[in-house]
């Protein structure tokens, strides 16, 4: 199973700033290993973020995103104590959800 994400959610003025670090190989499918065989593509395809269950961000990613990606975004309508949950799904169907409380 994939390693946990690191999520920080803090108030920044009247908006919530969310910073997420994900642990993922993000293989492009373009690289070859030491024996010359193509390393199969393996990357995060969908990212969604919810605040108290309501979707605040939905993104489609591709192989151009770097290994161990970092994502930062802001949204309106959150307040301290609310729960922010982030979910990613990769092209192998593996997924991971982690949660943080807004401070």
């Amino acid at each position: 199973m994939a390693d946990p994400m690191k999520i920080r959610a803090t108030m920044s003025g009247d908006k919530v700033e969310v910073k997420v670090l994900m642990s993922h190989e993000m293989e492009t499918g373009q690289r070859k290993d030491a024996k010359g065989a193509t390393i199969p593509a393996w990357f995060i395809q969908n990212v969604t973020a919810t605040c108290n269950g309501k979707t605040v961000l939905s993104a489609e990613w591709g192989p151009a995103v770097a290994k161990n990606p970092y994502m930062s975004f802001k949204f309106a309508g959150g307040k301290p104590g609310d729960k922010v949950a982030v979910t990613w799904v990769d092209n192998k169907g593996d997924k991971r959800t982690d949660e943080a409380t807004i401070s």
Binding site: K6, Y70, M71, S72
Partner: peptide, 8 residues
Amino acid sequence: GDGNPAEL
């Protein structure tokens, strides 16, 4: 530096 994957 803001999103240092070392945290993982």
